[in-house]
Design a protein around this nucleic acid. Sequence first.
DNA 1: GATCCGCTATACGGAAATGTATGACCCTAT
DNA 2: ATAGGGTCATACATTTCCGTATAGCGGATC
Lengths: 300, 300
Amino acid sequence: MTLCIDWALWRSFLAVAEAGSLSGAARRLSLTQPTVGRHIEQLEGAFGQKFFLRSPQGLMPTEEALALLPQARAMAMAADSLERQASAPAEEARGIVRIAASHVVGVELLPEALAPLVDAHPGLETELALSNENSDLLRHEADIALRMARPTQGSLIARYLGEVPLGLFAHRSYLLRHGSPQEPGDLRGHLLIGADRDPAFLAALEAFGGAMTRRSFRLRCDSEAAQLAALREGIGIAICQRGIAARDPDLVPVLAGQVSFRLGCWLVMHDDLRAVRRIRMVYDHLGKCLPRMFKRQPVP
Amino acid sequence: MTLCIDWALWRSFLAVAEAGSLSGAARRLSLTQPTVGRHIEQLEGAFGQKFFLRSPQGLMPTEEALALLPQARAMAMAADSLERQASAPAEEARGIVRIAASHVVGVELLPEALAPLVDAHPGLETELALSNENSDLLRHEADIALRMARPTQGSLIARYLGEVPLGLFAHRSYLLRHGSPQEPGDLRGHLLIGADRDPAFLAALEAFGGAMTRRSFRLRCDSEAAQLAALREGIGIAICQRGIAARDPDLVPVLAGQVSFRLGCWLVMHDDLRAVRRIRMVYDHLGKCLPRMFKRQPVP
DNA sequence: GATCCGCTATACGGAAATGTATGACCCTAT
DNA sequence: ATAGGGTCATACATTTCCGTATAGCGGATC
């Protein structure tokens, strides 16, 4: 407020920092290199410090610019969110809704869950922001998020969807080749598929008190979607949501009665978006639809 | 991103919504009324909807605009924060630091706590954002916040400052006129000063199981600073931080050994600001300084 | 070593956004 | 009733800002 910096300058600032060059930023913003260059100049002039080191290879952010970067991103998120929200009148069921979820959920559950909704509302557009990290709703990275951890409040609205049942599964072909484990101890001889560095997963392993370590899993990957693909390929045994496994008749439960996990699941949205009808609608729909999908049993 | 709205338009949007008129917004932004009017026009054109109802008395936000408002504010917060952060090179101990706290703390503790710091660093500017509500660091309303509740994470860094000891106090003159209560039951006949609608306070009362209600307090006000002023005026008996009461020799503990409370206290900052030296510095200083002030004993 | 492709920096003409000035309207106060 | 302060809308001049074009620099490729 003190200096009244034109907000457009920050946009150029962020673009340059992310693109690494004036020209690159200009392309991204549909501007020209001299314009973006002037913006940066203007910014540096206003604050009396250099934000980028010029070089013929591009611009390198200085220490100061790096410190500003996260906040500039926050601003960009808010701007994007504004454009999404303004994309249609609040009381209509059309416009853009951005949903954050893990890769598996995005691949295996959301398409099916959203299908009837987008079908019924021709003006409704959905964006899936799939990521392993909990994307930050507070920064408006998405409108709605599906989370496996209780949201730690802070102007967020959450709905508990219940527990997602997990189990061990293997492809029929794998079991034909390697046999079916009959008790947990048998797992030692099998090829297990698990997460790579996912902290939640590693923490869960601790619970087994050393009986299972990261090394127990011979195919490690943080993308659950890739794990699922490997599972379907018959590479080994993996943990999978029962509801998802149930959709594939070739996936066979392993140690069904003996090994099982559950994961709490929350649907979260930002309080700011309470007034936006289409978001509320998607939120409510997912809130009804997903628990059913979690509970789905295999059809024999 | 889809439409590439100039960020400056959102700034005008917010200003108009908050000022209630084009002219007002123009003054606030150091622009002119036609310019701001064009901005709004442009925005409405881009999204194909009206955001304001024009009238000779000003502009009234439509339903749609109201839905966008919180996010526009979030964007403004981020912009303000950016300006603050850029106000000085990150590695220098000068620039602006914005601190959120309650009114009492802002009046009674922060000035004293900050004095040596601003004295030692001539370039350091501090802004106090005093409010009863927990101001939202995640929206960059402030750089550092002092809170009486455990921060519910989410990219926030927090330091536990320990428990703030509270007690009942009264001004010497009040006790001369009305006598000193000797046991908790005696409080019934006295004029108690307490909060008005503060949910935390009302929740705390529940703990007494109906023995104390909101009506037990004859002077009710949510501003603890005003409560303190009333206390000093000799109006009645109030709950007060012991450290604050200790600074005033005329404030006498009431039922000192028998009634006491404690309140957890956290110093919080946003993870994004970790790299900004001056903020870190103020954070560290307050982290050391405040616990001492909480524990301060009356000097007889 | 010559060529090409990426980048930045500078100069200049043109378009777009801004500011000034004015008119019309409404409310309030005299 | 009327003058004054507030508002928005419009027309016009100007300035500011942007884009085009070009020069200069460094690294990669052949």
